[in-house]
Design a protein around this nucleic acid. Structure first.
Length: 208
DNA sequence: GGGACGATCGAT
DNA sequence: TCGATCGTCCCC
């Protein structure tokens, strides 16, 4: 008998109440889950980038820029900031920072866990090569959910999910962590923010 | 109303 | 390395 309609249990809202660089590392190893009419997909977060608000020249809210797009970043942490980029892709972020501190964490890669055939279908990949009966190669994983645009597509995340509560909606962070050893976390500069001047070299990309 | 550009991806 | 493709934002 089902005790709840959720596939997994979501983290408590308090989970997101951490400094952004700390939350970035805490997200590694957590499961991102999306329950939709098409089915459930999920994956373990393996790569993120921190965007640290009004003083960060790489951040959409740099200088306090507050628009309809960035509005959710100004609210409480633990909500989805989804934006459209390059005319064809969506990027998914976890809002971080307390109210009035518009920070966010871009999720750049996942290790697929649930709903792999659905992910493959959304990505326009041949279902045969990602049959769950067969072991996923690193190449499959990369094509499915390696990169922010790819993982958003595989997870069925679009602007529709903008502003959703990641501890209380059908898009959420699972509480069952695949606990990453902190020693396995690597850091480096963020990708594709050459315009960000001195901030482009900050080591605010974290991956396993 | 117009134009420049982008936290990407995939093909070459 | 380059083209696709269009919402967002800033400027006029």
């Amino acid at each position: 008998m089902l005790l709840k309609d959720k596939v997994g249990r979501a983290v408590d809202a308090a989970f997101f109440d951490k400094p952004t660089l700390e939350l970035s590392k805490a997200l590694l190893g957590m499961e991102l889950i999306h329950e939709t009419n098409e089915g459930v997909t999920s994956g373990i977060i393996t790569e993120v980038e921190a965007y640290c608000g009004v003083a960060d020249k790489g951040c959409h809210s740099y200088g306090g820029r507050r628009t309809k797009r960035t509005e959710v970043m100004f609210g409480p942490p633990g909500y989805a900031y989804v934006y459209f980029i390059y005319g064809m892709y969506y990027c998914f972020n976890v809002v971080s920072g307390e109210v009035g501190s518009p920070e966010a964490i871009l999720v750049r890669a996942l290790k697929p866990i649930q709903g792999i055939p659905l992910m493959a279908r959304r990505r326009g990949m041949n279902i045969g090569e990602t049959d769950s009966t067969r072991r996923l190669t690193n190449l499959h994983i990369n094509k499915l959910t390696g990169g922010p645009g790819r993982l958003a597509q595989a997870m069925g995340i679009t602007k529709e999910q903008y502003g959703w509560n990641l501890s209380d909606s059908s898009l959420y962070i699972g509480s069952g962590s695949h606990a990453i050893n902190p020693k396995r976390i690597v850091t480096g500069p963020r990708i594709n923010i050459d315009y960000a001047e001195e901030a482009k070299d900050y080591p605010w990309r974290f991956w396993v």
